[in-house]
Amino acid sequence: MSNLLKRIKNERGSQLIEFLAVFPLIIFAFLLIWQMAMAAYTVVVSEAAARDGARVASVEGDYQTAVERSAYGLDVTSSLITGSSSYGKEVTVIVHAKMPMISIPFVGKLDYTIDADATIPVIEENDD
């Protein structure tokens, strides 16, 4: 009986059990931080791609190529809107970037799209 009481009071291996209980939370926190970093990266790159595309479109260049080169590594689509305001003619480039997602077990891949746009006045050439 005293041998059984000694084994019950023995705390050998308790640190391992505590670590195994906390380890999934550590992994989950790491994956959450990584996903937030990928979301921030997608936002920054898609906004920069929209600005680059709008700059190229303002001088009547190939804005789609500029957007794709600026957002290298992301799955992007872009569209162009021309219009006018009190400042004159302007172009707006809208970029839709698919955010890379971590595949979550039992849930699968989620699908999110980040939208960014930039408007720049059209630069008109003078025939002087």
Rank of each mutant, 00 (worst) to 15 (best):
T119K: 03
T42E: 01
A57F: 07
H96K: 13
E47M: 08
S70P: 02
A40G: 15
I81W: 09
S103H: 11
K109F: 12
V91M: 03
K98H: 11
F106P: 04
M99D: 05
A66P: 08
T65Y: 06
G88N: 06
Y63M: 03
Y112D: 03
A71D: 03
L80D: 07
S103M: 12
A40Q: 12
R55P: 02
P100E: 05
S78Q: 01
G83N: 03
A50I: 01
A49N: 03
L80W: 08
I114N: 09
K98C: 08
I104V: 15
A97I: 08
G108L: 12
Y87R: 10
Y72A: 15
I104Q: 08
V43K: 05
I102Y: 11
G53L: 01
I94H: 02
A57P: 08
A29S: 14
G53R: 00
W34Y: 14
V67I: 07
D117V: 05
R51Q: 01
S103F: 13
S79G: 15
A66G: 06
P105G: 12
S85T: 13
S78N: 08
Y112F: 13
K89F: 09
V44G: 04
G61N: 10
V56M: 06
I94N: 08
R51A: 02
S86E: 13
A66W: 04
M36D: 01
Q64I: 11
P100Y: 08
T77M: 12
I104Y: 07
I114R: 07
Q64K: 13
A54P: 01
A50W: 04
V107A: 13
M99S: 09
A66D: 02
Y72E: 15
V91H: 00
L74H: 08
L31T: 12
M36F: 12
H96D: 15
H96A: 14
V56K: 00
F106A: 11
D52N: 11
D115H: 11
S86K: 07
I33F: 11
P105E: 11
L74G: 02
K109I: 09
S86P: 04
V45T: 09
R69L: 13
R51K: 06
I33S: 15
K98D: 12
T113I: 11
I33E: 02
K109N: 15
V91R: 00
I114G: 04
D115W: 07
I94Y: 07
V95N: 01
A37W: 06
K98M: 10
A39G: 13
A37M: 11
D117C: 08
D52F: 04
T42Q: 00
V59T: 12
